[in-house]
């Protein structure tokens, strides 16, 4: 018997590979069985139709409110994606600042927005901010959209900022030094040398955060933002049907996140600086 290290291996590579395959198969079969049961329940258990296909067809009509909700989350996503990435650049720059005050404030910002639940933040903004005004004097009549946009932007700027900071810190310090030694100012060196490279390093992490951003729009249901989860709750309260609206909502989310995920992977490959190494 050969000794391969302290304690020896838990399993041989081949055993491990087969175990992995078996586990994956078990998962796939379970999910398949669940989906079959769900979609074909009428045939499997007589009289027990889990998905009301008539209702599903109705909810999927072009005139359905679900499309309005879908468009709403698309809009709020696109807007906050751009805003949170732009704000994230400044958060990231603040985090790497050599000025203690700037770095400290950026640090506090990140700690707060990463350290408290998004639900807490959205409530603090939606209910907390108007509380500063005398009753009836709050100037915005529809505060839902502004609160949603501000909350999502503030929260995700913290994550993008950290992603970008990681991207900047993974660059050799020689890049900044070389740029500065040519007479570039800090801002010029950042813009032309450091950020273009840091951005490439940060693409996977920022992309990951954008996918989470799509899903975080569901939390806006607590402030009655007209999005998909609120729409589901409405349908359920009216019809007592769970699965027809659930299927629709799930599909709607996936139509955003699956292409987004593909886009992020593609962007990550294109941006990968090591690809330049291949002549």
């Amino acid at each position: 018997m050969s000794e391969t290290g302290t304690g020896g291996p838990i399993a041989s590579d081949e055993t491990f590979r087969r175990l992995g395959m078996a586990a994956a198969l078990v998962v796939a079969l379970s999910v398949g069985a669940f989906l079959a049961l769900l979609f074909l329940s009428g045939h499997v258990i007589p009289g027990r139709q889990l998905i009301n296909y008539g209702l599903l067809a109705e909810l999927a009509q072009p005139s359905s409110d679900y499309y309005g909700a879908y468009i709403n989350i698309l809009q709020v996503f696109l807007l906050t994606a751009v805003m949170s990435v732009i704000c994230g650049v400044f958060v990231g720059l603040g985090r790497i600042s050599k000025t203690p005050l700037t770095a400290g404030i950026a640090r506090l910002y990140v700690e707060f927005f990463r350290g408290t639940p998004f639900l807490f933040q959205i409530m603090a903004i939606y209910y907390g901010v108007p509380a500063f005004f005398e009753p009836g004097t709050f100037p915005l009549t529809n505060f839902t959209w502004p609160a949603a946009i501000v909350a999502l932007t503030l929260n995700h700027a913290a994550y993008s900022g950290e992603a970008l900071r990681g991207g900047i810190e993974s660059l050799p310090t020689g890049q900044m030094e070389a740029a500065r030694s040519l007479g570039m100012s800090y801002v010029q060196a950042m813009r032309n040398v450091v950020l273009p490279q840091a951005w490439r390093n940060a693409v996977p992490a920022v992309g990951n955060d954008l996918i989470i951003l799509v899903k975080d729009t569901s939390l806006l249901s607590v402030i009655a933002f007209p999005e998909l989860i609120s729409q589901f709750q409405y349908t359920y309260s009216q019809q007592f049907e769970a699965w027809a609206p659930l299927v629709l909502v799930g599909v709607f989310y996936l139509t955003i996140t699956v292409p987004l995920s593909a886009l992020v992977n593609y962007a990550g490959e294109v941006a990968d600086p090591s690809r330049r190494a291949e002549p």
Partner: peptide, 8 residues
């Protein structure tokens, strides 16, 4: 010493 060319 380490060149520090801009790789992009």
């Amino acid at each position: 010493q380490s060149f520090n060319l801009f790789p992009h």
